[in-house]
Amino acid sequence: MSEVKPLTPQAACETCPVHNAANLLKLGVDMTDWDYVVALAGNPNTGKSTVFNALTGLRQHTGNWPGKTVTRAEGGFEYGGHKYKLVDLPGTYSLLSTSLDEEVARDFLLFGQPDVSIVVVDATRLERNLNLALQVMEITERVVICLNLMDEARRHGLQVDERRLARDLGVPVVPTSARYSRGLDDLVAAIADVANGVTRPKPRRLKSLTPELERVVSRLAAHVEELYPDLPNARWVALRLLDGDERIAEAIHLGELGDLSRGLSPEEGMSIQPAAEASR
């Protein structure tokens, strides 16, 4: 009978900043000279690989179970004139233990120095997922939270206040349903804003440390900073040293941290594989 007319006129779309998302160019594995490196972290089974596929146009096998991705996968996309390399990291619950998959994720966030780190978070299990997000935010400031599985949260009758969460965390929070390609436009826009410095996240730092521990951490962090003035995460390095993390101690010993703070990319000497072998 009567045709359903689109409610929004075309003209309105063109002026909207989100419109650019239509210009998202999926580059697949073609990653010759990129402008920014984006890491994709998150708990297992939160849809990291689905987000990865949606942005790169690749078809990494996705599956509904934790532990699907144990190695990193890389792909690219182009947006707003810049090329981005997206690195899909293994899903982990924390960055504090020593299993191989966690090490792959942790080493990349720390030594790979991504320009933006996306933490994919399961909206239906926010508390446990924030554990990881908080740890990532200790390592790097440039974090975007992808609040995924919003469709499932809704199905379970949960309401997540993403604005309050963004305010509390101090980083952009983008609600998505990656399986149904919802919210990805906003996600890409948020990534671009952080990468280009339009948005400068000010992530909250852990506040619940005991005063005594806080004192020790600050003291050691000051020394780390003194030795490596350009290191963005001196406090985290200090925390790890106090925890007796062998890997970090080794990195200091071998001078890898020094390279990082001088802005050299340690990618060549610091591939993921040797770390895996060393832990055996």
Partner: peptide, 9 residues
């Protein structure tokens, strides 16, 4: 943080 952001039915 989760408690502040999530509204449970």
């Amino acid at each position: 943080l989760a408690d502040r952001a999530v509204l449970r039915p």
